[in-house]
Amino acid sequence: MLKYTLNRLLIALPVLVGISIISFFIVRLVPGDTVTAMLGAHYSEEEAQALRETYGLDQSLVTQYALWIGNVVRGDLGQSAFTGQPVLAAILERLPVTVQLVAMSVGFALLMALPLGILAAVRRGGPGDFSVTFLGLLGISVPGFWLGTLLILGFSLYLGWLPSGGFIMWSVDPVENLRHMILPALALGGAVAAVIMRMTRSAMLDVLGEDYVKLARAKGMPPRVWILKHAFRNALIPVVTITGIQAGYLLGGSVVIEQIFSLPGIGMLSLQAINNRDYALLQGTVLFVGVCFVLINLLVDLLYAWLDPRIKYG
């Protein structure tokens, strides 16, 4: 297992370096000049030059990359050119919002997907299966931003049950915090629920065909036992994998959802960075999200190897 872990890490390393290179250079390709964006409509050339020097923008690209990556390794992602806030601090400040959003989305998704997926597999071919299959297809087809809009319209405007957006910190008011996150988590989790549901159904179908499940069923065990104890446990591996992978994708999906629900998370931060042409901030968020994504995938790989004895640790 240790060897397998090290091997996976070794493969991840060049990818991480690649991500850093892309994060750095992709941002240089973006048109528009941070300095002019920062100074507004009126400024003197000396001022602009001074700023360029402050942010090292007057050096060659390779030098800039070397300087930058050196700082990144030491945990310094630079300063936002707009607010002067350190980029890492800005990211860490918003991270809890996105983490909570993603976690709650995955939570909702599992709550909806597992029972329905199991139900569909057990009642294969029946009307229940057909409805669940169709619901799953619908779920991956509905644009999250449309779902979000419909949820606001229904639950916030017509019913007035839940707030339409904004964020309250858990430490300030846990109840309000949860109430503000329900609709965004539902909007973001809808598609994930559909994906997990489809996976649960097909994994369960695989397992239900196995002899030991058939045997358990034939022996007259109550459904709760043979479905949950025998079948579901063994169907869990692909479900866990796909859930992990989806959690990574949610980092991207949160850009749109955070925008609709005015949530101050990583997604909103990266959109602001794009809109303001804030080089350091855009670099930082792109790098951060990329690295998170790789780490999540690495974890999923390891979890998979740990759950599935058939994988050789070679």
């Binding site: 606001i152 916030s156 405007l157 007035g160 707030p163 339409s164 957006g165 904004g166 925008q259 609709i260 629900f261 005015s262």
Partner: peptide, 18 residues
């Protein structure tokens, strides 16, 4: 002060007394 960039969200927040 609470920044709410989307106009509709702003209106909704006022209607809900947020």
């Amino acid at each position: 002060f609470r920044p709410i960039s989307d106009e509709t969200s702003r209106t909704t927040a006022l209607r809900n007394g947020e």
